[in-house]
Write a protein that binds this DNA or RNA. Sequence first.
DNA 1: TCGATAATAGTAATTATTACTGATAATCTA
DNA 2: TAGATTATCAGTAATAATTACTATTATCGA
Lengths: 130, 130
Amino acid sequence: MRKTKQREAILDELTKLCTHPSADELYGRVKKRLPRISLGTVYRNLETLSREGVIQRLDTAGSQKRFDADTGDHRHIRCIRCGRIDDLAAGADRARCDARVAKGTGYRVLGRRVEYLGVCPACGRKTGRR
Amino acid sequence: MRKTKQREAILDELTKLCTHPSADELYGRVKKRLPRISLGTVYRNLETLSREGVIQRLDTAGSQKRFDADTGDHRHIRCIRCGRIDDLAAGADRARCDARVAKGTGYRVLGRRVEYLGVCPACGRKTGRR
DNA sequence: TCGATAATAGTAATTATTACTGATAATCTA
DNA sequence: TAGATTATCAGTAATAATTACTATTATCGA
Ligand SMILES: [Mn+2]
Ligand SMILES: [Mn+2]
Ligand SMILES: [Zn+2]
Ligand SMILES: [Zn+2]
């Protein structure tokens, strides 16, 4: 992975933000520094950087992908009105969890989305390992 | 909401499936019964039916939206290989939860995605109610 | 310094979804 | 039941996010 001024600018802007921006939000920021950068370059670098583990691509709902310079394991809270995404501190324990999150973020907590991830029996069989 | 043969066929096919299909998967099924139906009609009806609370639009990650005829509150497990989504029984309690899910579904559980939903302070202020 | 090639800008293509339009058919009213 | 009303339809165009392509440029190890 070569070091280019485009890649540096993209990573630098993402690191400065705590807003978990989408590719085109980031493009708008970076363009101020490098006016000739293309949106494709932003997409390509976000892909490369997340593949290399430098950043993470958030696996959230919504039509646009979001990116995060913090690769640590942490959770997020998203506003169902404006789509804003904020960080949550790690551990938390379900029952009093909503109240704690509300207190920590100022959000009115309406619920949470939980989706388990794994390998289904059919796919597990294909690769031997179950 | 008028009763049309297109709407009936779409709802009927969705109800028969436990696979949480996307709009175009459903379109493929329904087309066998109504060969002249258009994809737009499938999209429009899935939207109408979920707005009326007859079905639910799943708020999962991934590029395509998924739909579920079961409007009850339940969780899902998705395969990171093939994208398949299966149902989970409701309640579950975190620690021994993964093991229980694995036992119940046959999946090799690798993790879970948790996203809290709510109204951020800025949006809450706009509508008075916090 | 130089050559191999990773990365870029600009553009075209793709994919999922929504919007538009004139025709059709479900439901309502007399 | 007939006729009026209008939700819904099929077909198609438009939009939005993302990815792919291509000729050119810039990085970096020898
Ligand atoms: Mn974060
Ligand atoms: Mn379900
Ligand atoms: Zn908000
Ligand atoms: Zn699978």
